[in-house]
């Protein structure tokens, strides 16, 4: 069987600065009330003394290659589309929460009707050739949605240069670019 190009949602943690715009743009796009959070920006504190800093990581569905939620679902309500998107057929969900216990990322959400729903990578937009709402809006351009190959290329372009420039060492040695 020909495997379609796998699409992923990639978060660039070096860029996410914790504004949380992805959370409300997602609510609006998916018409969600308070309750189910298809994505959530998490914060983690690292370092000590001078290296202390905040880190941010939006956690939408990871659309895992071998998705534990799909395996765990006893009713077959979850499946992985050919392009890699993990989708829920809410009509088949009985609300047993097995997917939530299985998901290492805490992604499955339960709306007031008790059935699971989660990030769909905005398939309705993908299928029309536009980016998921969070990726399209991210003010820090930290959310990418593309094939692994393309994302790899974008990241190399982003960070390749920095390596050669060096943050500031050479300039401090008197070779100011001034």
């Amino acid at each position: 069987m020909e495997v379609r190009q796998q699409r992923i949602l990639y978060i660039d943690p070096a860029r996410c600065m914790g504004c949380r715009a992805c959370e409300t743009v997602c609510k609006l796009e998916n018409d969600l009330p308070a309750g189910p959070r298809y994505t959530m920006v998490t914060e983690a504190e690292t370092g000590e003394g001078e290296t202390e800093k905040l880190n941010f990581l939006p956690v939408p569905c990871q659309h895992c290659g071998d998705a534990p939620c799909v395996r765990a679902c006893p009713t077959g309500a979850l499946h992985k589309r050919e392009d890699g998107v993990v989708l829920t057929d809410r009509r088949k969900c009985v609300g047993c929460h097995e997917c939530l216990w299985a998901c290492p990322f805490g992604v499955p959400q339960f709306a007031s009707d008790g059935r699971m729903s989660k990030c769909t990578m905005c398939v309705h937009r993908l299928d029309e050739g536009t980016l998921p709402a969070c990726a399209a809006n991210c003010p820090a351009e930290a959310i990418l949605c593309d094939t692994v190959e393309n994302i790899s290329r974008i990241l190399r372009e982003r960070y390749g240069k920095t390596v050669f420039c060096g943050p500031f060492a050479d300039r401090l040695n008197g070779e100011a670019a001034r």
Binding site: A21, E23, V25
Partner: peptide, 10 residues
């Protein structure tokens, strides 16, 4: 602002 809004915007 290039088509991006903050969380309050939405």
């Amino acid at each position: 602002t290039k088509g991006h809004l903050c969380l309050k915007g939405f």
